[in-house]
């Protein structure tokens, strides 16, 4: 299991789209990927779950991944959250 903390860096108008792309990226990995913010933890492959974290710009998120491709997964998700492109 690997874990890392990142800051979400995204313009407000793009958040919904950014989250949708994030889910797609996460779903491409076999590992279980979790995002936590404060005491709430959501599956990164679930749209409603991630939405419920109420992520805003500069939110601090902890990413946890567990599975056969956990290292690639956490790299991909961390770099996406720090600089979303779509």
């Amino acid at each position: 299991m690997v874990s890392r903390t990142v800051l979400f860096n995204c313009d407000e108008a793009l958040q919904m789209k950014a989250v949708a792309v994030l889910i797609q990226k996460a779903s491409a990995f076999r590992s279980s990927i979790w995002l936590s913010r404060g005491e709430r933890r959501a599956n990164a492959k679930s749209l409603l779950g991630v939405m419920s974290l109420g992520i805003e710009n500069a939110a601090e998120l902890q990413i946890t991944a567990e599975g056969s491709d956990e290292a690639e997964a956490i790299d991909a998700i961390a770099s996406y959250l720090a600089q979303p492109e779509f």
């Binding site: 709430r40 959501a42 599956n43 679930s46 749209l47 409603l48 779950g49 419920s52």
Partner: peptide
């Protein structure tokens, strides 16, 4: 239905 996706 009570909750989908994330249950507290």
């Amino acid at each position: 239905l009570i909750a989908d996706d994330l249950v507290e």
